[in-house]
Write a protein that binds this DNA or RNA. Structure first.
Length: 293
DNA sequence: CACCAGGACGGCG
DNA sequence: CGCCGTCATGGT
């Protein structure tokens, strides 16, 4: 019996990229570090990525199709240099950029991003990852990988056909209901993601805010991580503290004011600054329960 | 036991 | 607008 052995393929022109900071900074919930490589999903296809000696390698079932998908996912077409140059406007962000150089905003699937961040409300990242994996195991289509079986992220239609009882085992808590309702609306087809991508930030955001379980913060995450709206500035408890401490001497601000300040201060790439400040704050905090050592 | 986690939501002033 | 209590769950 002949078994197709997937091999590592190289992608040239993968400049200004730090895989670990990009994949493990809380933007996406399905990437796992395995030795010196990362296993995850792009366009709902299993992929392994590895960076070595300045070169980027990928492994996939269909390498020819995956090559372009990987480059698109990591946004390798854009010059990070120009983006960082524009947000590098003060000492705090300068330090974060210096430490995390190569962190890129991933261009993810909108539906998966919506579901993932809907589950992230009042929750912590490790548990969101477990919830997502639980959803995939139970309701996601099976795929082959390295002689074993892995599961894709379930489609909106797949979740829309379920009831809250069905996903009780996923332990989603009070997030089950809004996820199901959002899944039904997406499955209904009213959402044209490419149309949202063409809209401007405010217009697209207004539409997302209509979904149950989607408030300002989650909407901004969807816009930033899957709809190319790099001015979106998601304000969670972490970035709120960072902005208050670094830019307002610890004075308390409302999330709305934090967002407004950041978007005016950093400009059209405010969302990139947000991700650098967010990850920097979490990576270099004194106690770090989510990333031991 | 309290408190926290990449919040959302409804009620109220 | 801002503030407040509540929501389900698992970890410290």
């Amino acid at each position: 019996m002949i078994t197709l052995q997937a091999q590592w393929k190289c992608i040239k022109n993968a400049e200004d990229l730090n895989l670990e900071h990009s994949l493990l900074s809380g933007q996406a919930f399905r990437w796992k570090k395995e030795g010196n490589a990362f296993f995850g999903w792009i366009r709902n296809e299993p992929v392994a990525l590895r960076q070595e000696g300045g070169s980027l390698f990928f492994m996939a079932q269909e390498p020819d199709a995956a090559r372009g998908a990987v480059a698109e996912y990591l946004d390798l077409g854009t010059s990070l240099e120009l983006v960082l140059q524009e947000i590098d406007r003060d000492p705090p962000i300068h330090l974060a950029v210096q430490k995390l150089r190569g962190l890129r905003i991933l261009r993810q699937d909108p539906w998966e991003t919506l579901a993932g961040f809907l589950l992230s409300s009042n929750n912590n990242i490790p548990r969101v990852q477990k919830m997502v994996e639980s959803l995939c195991e139970r309701f996601g289509e099976a795929a082959e990988w390295e002689g074993g079986t892995v599961h894709r992220f379930p489609s909106a239609k797949a979740l829309a056909s379920l009831g809250e009882k069905d996903m009780a085992a996923c332990r989603l808590g009070y997030r089950a209901a809004p996820l199901l309702e959002s899944a039904r609306r997406v499955a209904r087809g009213v959402f044209d993601w490419e149309e949202l991508r063409q809209m401007d930030y405010a217009e697209a955001k207004k539409i997302l805010l209509d979904l149950p379980g989607v408030g300002e913060k989650v909407a901004d995450c969807i816009l930033l991580f899957s709809l190319d709206k790099l001015e979106a500035f998601p304000v969670d408890v972490w970035i709120k503290r960072v902005v208050e401490d670094f830019y307002f001497r610890g004075k308390r601000l409302t999330p709305k004011r934090v967002r407004r300040f950041a978007q005016e201060h950093f400009g059209r790439y405010a969302g990139v600054a947000q991700q650098y400040l967010f990850h920097y704050a979490r990576l270099f905090r004194s106690s770090n329960p989510e990333k031991p050592s």
